[in-house]
């Protein structure tokens, strides 16, 4: 138990420092030796964070983009993994390896071609455009992961549902999804955070303020070689608070009841 406490402390120390720094003055932040707590806590950094950049707009953009990305990824990914585990199509392994291999190329090499394509299609500076790229980049992972999960679920449940006349969609929604709830939740969070944190693509594809994402916005506080860390920390907190409550809220619903209803043979 002690180990757990110590570990959680280490895990949370950087966050704690970030919180503390967001209330510090620049003088506190500059000081040597470093300060653990603000000498005169103030909300000035939060005010600067909100006024220097339209950070809330960026948070909104990030939310819209990542939610679309998660939706695309889950839909396409579930369909593909269902096909790979429950139907007798050929080239399953080839497909999996191909999908994976193609996703292994460093992102930098994707940027130029995708920029040109999007420029032609008018998808630059749109929520959907960036969401689609973000989704596609995490799609291989989603397919692989859901395939692994589906493989682990015995087909016996579906057989009985099939006998009752249920279609694939019903089977997926009423039989498989409840069993996979935790996995679907995890992969959603994974894709969500993956898309949320995508920096280079967001910067290049969504350059305009109206569609800018929050990770790009965070880099704009810096001027003249120095980062006003207090302001960036405050902005960072503003961006992770909604995430925090979202996860706190949903993990109860989705992970909560699952222990009782695990897979039984």
């Amino acid at each position: 138990m002690l180990f757990v406490v110590v570990f959680l402390f280490v895990m949370l120390a950087p966050l704690a420092y970030m919180v503390s720094a967001s209330f510090m003055s620049q003088a506190d932040l500059n000081s040597i030796p470093p300060k653990l707590f603000p000498s005169a806590p103030s909300l000035a950094n939060f005010v600067s964070a909100l006024t220097q950049q339209p950070i809330l707009k960026y948070v909104y953009n990030s939310f819209v983009i990542t939610l679309i990305a998660v939706a695309i990824c889950l839909t396409a990914g579930s369909m593909a993994s269902y096909a790979l585990t429950r139907t007798r199509i050929r080239f399953k392994t080839t497909f999996l390896v191909f999908v994976l291999a193609i996703s292994l190329l460093p992102t930098i090499t994707l940027i130029n071609p995708i920029f040109k394509l999007y420029s032609r299609l008018g998808l630059l500076n749109t929520h959907l455009g960036l969401a689609v790229v973000a989704a596609v980049l995490d799609l291989p992972m989603t397919i692989w992961f859901l395939t692994a999960v589906l493989k682990g679920i015995p087909t016996s449940f579906e057989e009985s549902a099939k006998l009752d006349g249920a279609g694939i969609f019903q089977i997926f929604v009423y039989v498989l999804a409840p069993i996979m709830k935790a996995s679907l939740f995890s992969i959603s969070i994974l894709v969500f955070i993956g898309a949320w944190n995508r920096y280079l693509l967001s910067q290049v594809l969504n350059q305009y303020e109206a569609r800018r994402t929050v990770v790009v916005g965070l880099t704009l506080y810096q001027t003249n070689h120095t980062v006003p860390f207090g302001v960036v920390a405050a902005a960072g907190l503003i961006t992770i608070l909604p995430l925090f409550f979202l996860v706190l809220r949903f993990q109860k619903n989705i992970l909560g009841g699952i222990m009782e209803g695990g897979v039984k043979e």
């Binding site: 839909t75 369909m79 008018g122 500076n125 749109t126 959907l128 455009g129 109206a210 569609r211």
Partner: peptide, 21 residues
Amino acid sequence: LTAAMLTGCSSSAPEGQSQEP
């Protein structure tokens, strides 16, 4: 579903254009 996703991709182009500030 497939159609929805595809049209979702392509039909957004004009929409995207108009959104451009």
